[in-house]
């Protein structure tokens, strides 16, 4: 999937420092609300929906529709990046067809935001979100974290470096999926945090001991089979695998305060100043929807007071980097770098 570069600057936080998730929870004072506390939705809304999660987003939308019979919800579905481009093209042509854009990755949100098309969100909407995930013009819905899946029969947890950069110098055999969009977002985060030179050096170092797989599930499966010691993958592949195969030989390790434990997010933005659109976003942040997506899609809830998916280790020891997620749209330089190094 190609994403376009976009202008930075949506988020107030600028320093690329870490925010322990435990602290993030503590900083949020307002817990998620129940759907029972929200007003009924009325009128017409057009949602552009990026495909993903095998129909679970559709199930959320069906439930919202069922609960709000006076809501005329019209949905246009497509690939997230394609819909982002469509929104920008429509705006250039002087038309606006969508009231809302729900994207499966934050890079596409960045593409739309940089055009000045996203409407500001009321503060009381974002206060439910955990610190580090509050943006003035878009709302993260759920998160996914980068992890190091490892095979406990081949390697002990303490043998895995806590610094992602140090893995390039370790003797561990590695599984990776360089062509996979999630991996490329992770490399983009590394570039933003460490610069191109260090990232290129890291890619060269890892590639010497890495086996490539078509996707990140393939990476996790290879770790589980013992083909490699560790891998790089989003958390949900391991959780879903263990859900279907509880005795799978794979555990999760996390690096600290670097791209190796990046938390990326799906998100939604409003394209029109429409109270119903804003209230629609509130529905996605309810306890019920967040809990549903955590339990059924293994996504990480980003509002306070909702339990993370079963099987995700305590977040107390995890400290993802503080990074403007919309900057992950800066994919082109990442692909160029990966090609230069010879891993793509």
């Amino acid at each position: 999937m190609q994403r376009r570069t976009f202008i930075q600057g949506l988020v107030a936080a600028s320093a690329l420092s870490s925010i322990p998730l435990t602290r993030a929870f503590a900083e949020s004072r307002v817990s998620a609300v129940s759907v029972e506390q929200l007003p009924l939705l009325k009128g017409q809304l057009t949602l552009y929906l990026g495909r993903g999660e095998g129909g679970l987003y559709e199930k959320v939308l069906d439930a919202i529709r069922e609960r709000n019979p006076a809501l005329d919800l019209r949905i246009r579905r497509g690939a997230t990046a394609a819909l982002a481009n469509t929104i920008v093209a429509e705006a250039r042509a002087g038309v606006r067809r969508a009231d809302l854009f729900w994207a499966v990755d934050s890079g596409a949100i960045g593409l739309v935001s940089e055009q000045g098309l996203a409407q500001p969100l009321p503060k009381d909407l974002t206060q439910h979100l955990k610190a580090g995930f509050r943006y003035p013009q878009w709302a993260p819905v759920t998160g996914r974290i980068r992890t190091i899946p490892y095979n406990p029969q081949r390697v002990r947890a303490e043998q895995i470096p806590k610094n992602i950069m140090a893995i390039a110098d370790s003797k561990l055999s590695i599984g990776w999926a360089p062509a996979y969009a999630s991996f490329q977002s992770f490399v983009t985060a590394m570039r933003l945090l460490k610069g191109d030179l260090q990232t290129a050096s890291w890619l060269r170092g890892v590639s010497k001991r890495a086996t490539s797989y078509a996707g990140e599930l393939g990476v996790v499966m290879a770790v589980e089979r013992g083909e490699v010691d560790i891998g790089f993958a989003n958390h949900y592949y391991t959780l879903r695998l263990k859900s279907g195969k509880p005795d799978a030989n794979v555990e999760l390790a996390f690096t600290e305060n670097d791209a190796g434990c990046l938390v990326n997010a799906s998100g939604i933005l409003a394209l029109s100043q429409n109270e119903t659109a804003i209230n629609f976003i509130r529905y996605l942040h309810t306890r019920e929807v967040q809990s549903f997506l955590a339990s059924e899609a293994y996504e990480i809830p980003l509002v306070r007071g909702v339990e993370p998916p079963t099987g995700l280790p305590s977040l107390a020891s995890v400290s993802p980097p503080d990074i403007d997620l919309t900057r992950l749209a800066e994919l082109r330089p990442t692909l160029d770098l990966m090609r230069d190094v010879g891993v793509l």
């Binding site: 993903g52 095998g54 679970l56 393939g218 499966m221 592949y237 879903r240 695998l241 899609a297 293994y298």
Partner: peptide, 18 residues
């Protein structure tokens, strides 16, 4: 978009299709 849900049901099937 579908594979996420399918992994929990049959991870080897998903890997094979990938």
């Amino acid at each position: 978009g579908l594979e996420g849900r399918l992994i929990a049901e049959d991870a080897e099937l998903v890997e094979s299709l990938e």
